[in-house]
């Protein structure tokens, strides 16, 4: 069963088609990799899916429900949460409060939210930094905070936009383990990542975007052996 379904989704910025006619399904409980060269329209697709802006054309169905025109707060309440490629910590609030804000999505009680937040910080190993201001964290920890904060909203579907960008190998490995743990919890994930090794290891299926269009879709094996992909993407990289 698909938790997320995109049907002919397009997004235009003036004359530029950042996404054009993208369709695919994300099965429940899987990790879907989303790759493509810079400017391929990956972040734009996340923005459309999460209601940051409505798609220009097409339909997005989440959990059996048409999402068109739903604002991000409603989308989050329905169980879809995203991280930002350019991290957005609430800089003047403590790390713990950042996560409490996420947890309050599911409860009115600040005390419950604090407990959930502490658990999440423990999971991403930031509990020791709970009382620092979020703005004081280095990039690696900001990325982890970003993940802890969205996890606290108790999502069914998690969209991770380059959470490993700018991290060192050790930090990346931590994030990879985290993503695998999240899958064990039964949370479906869509992962945008540039690190090919990581994405091959993590993904059950992969969608390749190029110039806004879906170039290919398949298992990691199928993708690495797809001549079009090699030509357009992997080839261009090396």
């Amino acid at each position: 069963m698909a938790i997320l379904e995109l049907r002919h989704v397009s997004k235009f910025f003036g004359g530029l088609a950042a996404n054009s006619d993208v369709s695919f399904e994300v099965p429940v409980g899987t990790i879907m990799g989303l790759i493509g060269p810079n400017g391929a329209g990956k972040t734009t697709l996340f923005n459309c899916i999460t209601g940051y802006y409505p798609p220009s054309k097409g339909e997005i169905v989440f959990d059996g429900r048409a999402m068109n025109g739903l604002l991000p707060d409603k989308v989050c309440k329905l169980g879809m949460a995203r991280t930002w490629q350019k991290v957005r910590p609430l800089t003047n609030l403590p790390v713990l409060d950042n996560v409490i804000v996420g947890a309050l999505c599911r409860t009115r009680s600040v005390r419950d939210a604090r407990r959930i937040a502490q658990e999440q910080l423990h999971i991403v190993k930031l509990e020791g930094k709970a009382h620092l201001l979020a703005g004081a964290l280095p990039i690696g920890e900001r990325k982890k905070l970003e993940v802890a904060r969205v996890l606290a909203t108790k999502p069914k579907l998690l969209l991770l936009d380059e959470v490993m960008g700018g991290l060192n190998p050790a930090e990346s490995e931590e994030i990879i383990q985290l993503i695998l743990d999240i899958r064990k919890e039964g949370i479906t994930q869509m992962v945008i990542e540039h690190d090919m090794k990581a994405i091959m290891r993590l993904s059950d299926r992969i969608v390749v975007l190029n110039s806004g269009e879906k170039l290919a879709e398949g298992s990691p094996d199928e993708i690495v052996n797809n001549p079009q992909v090699i030509e357009a993407y992997l080839g261009a990289e090396s």
């Binding site: 999460t50 940051y52 604002l71 991000p72 707060d73 989050c76 309440k77 949460a81 995203r82 930002w84 957005r88 910590p89 609430l90 800089t91 003047n92 609030l93 409060d97 804000v101 996420g102 309050l104 999505c105 904060r149 969205v150 909203t153």
Partner: peptide, 14 residues
């Protein structure tokens, strides 16, 4: 305070 710090982030957190 979340709205004060970052409206888009706040919005995406429900």
């Amino acid at each position: 305070q979340a709205i004060r710090e970052d409206q888009d982030a706040a919005h995406s957190l429900g």
